[in-house]
C-alpha cells in the first residue's frame, strides 16, 4: 500500500489556479485592530516596557527607556493596541510596585495612541521621520504628564527628577513652569531614543510575525 507522486523537475507543473496570490494592501480599520493576535501582543509590550527599564539600571544608562513596548505595539499593531499597552503597563506597575503610577496610565495610553497614529500617517517609514515622531511623542507625554503631576502630586514625582525641578524653581521659575522645564530637559533624549529603539526592533520583526498593520506602517 504505497502511493507515490513525482518529485523535483517532474513536479514543475503543479501550479495554483489563476488569480492565486493577489491580496489587498490596506490598513485595517480601528476596530479591526484588536484581534486575538493583538491581545497576545499587549502583555509582551508591557513586559518590554518593564524589562527595558530594568536593563537601563543594569547597564547604568542615564535614561528611562520604559516606553519602548508601548511605541512598538502602537507601530506594529495600531493606535488602539498601543494605547491599551500603555494603559496596562501603568495598571500592572501600579498594582505590583507602586500605586502612585496609576494616574500616569493616561500618559502611557496617549503615547501608544500617538505612536500608532504617527505610524498610520507614515511617520515610521524613515529614520528622520522617526526622530520627528519621537519629538512629537515627547510633546504628547509632557503635555499630559505635567498637569497630572501638578494637580495630583503638587509637582512632585518622588524620583530624581524632583532635584531638577527644585533647581529650576531655585532660579526663579514658578513650580508649574519648573515641571515643564524639567520635562523638556530630560524627555527629548529619552523619548527619541525609545522611539528609535522601538523602530529598529519593529523593523527586525519578520514580516510573517507582523500583524497586518505592521506590514504597511514600516519600510519594506
Amino acid at each position: 500500500m504505497l502511493t507515490v507522486r513525482p518529485t523535483g523537475q517532474d513536479a514543475a507543473d503543479y501550479n495554483p489556479p489563476p488569480g492565486f496570490g493577489v491580496q489587498a494592501h490596506r490598513f485595517p480599520a480601528l476596530k479591526a485592530q484588536l484581534t486575538t493576535r493583538a491581545w497576545a501582543l499587549i502583555p509582551i509590550g508591557v513586559g518590554i516596557n518593564v524589562v527595558g527599564g530594568v536593563l537601563v539600571t543594569t547597564l547604568r544608562l542615564p535614561l528611562y527607556l520604559d516606553t519602548i513596548g508601548t511605541v512598538l505595539t502602537g507601530v506594529i499593531a495600531g493606535p488602539l493596541v498601543g494605547a491599551v499597552t500603555g494603559l496596562l503597563t501603568n495598571l500592572v506597575l501600579g498594582v505590583t510596585a507602586n500605586p502612585t503610577l496609576l494616574p500616569y496610565a493616561v500618559t502611557s495610553a496617549f503615547i501608544g495612541l500617538g505612536a500608532g497614529c504617527l505610524a498610520r500617517w507614515g511617520m515610521f517609514r524613515s529614520v528622520p521621520r522617526v526622530i520627528v515622531s519621537g519629538l512629537v511623542i515627547m510633546l504628547i507625554a509632557t503635555l499630559v504628564t505635567a498637569p497630572i503631576s501638578i494637580f495630583l502630586f503638587g509637582g512632585v514625582a518622588g524620583t530624581g527628577v524632583d532635584a531638577v525641578r527644585g533647581a529650576f524653581a531655585a532660579f526663579g521659575s514658578s513650580l508649574v513652569a519648573s515641571v515643564f522645564q524639567s520635562s523638556f530637559l530630560v524627555e527629548p533624549f529619552d523619548k527619541t531614543a525609545s522611539t528609535l529603539l522601538a523602530f529598529y526592533a519593529a523593523k527586525s520583526i519578520p514580516m510573517r510575525f507582523r500583524p497586518p498593520f505592521g506590514r504597511l506602517s514600516l519600510p519594506r
Binding site: M1, T3, T7
Partner: peptide, 8 residues
C-alpha cells in the same frame, strides 16, 4: 516542496 510525494 509543499507536496505529498509518498503516502502509505
Amino acid at each position: 516542496e509543499g507536496r505529498i510525494t509518498a503516502d502509505g
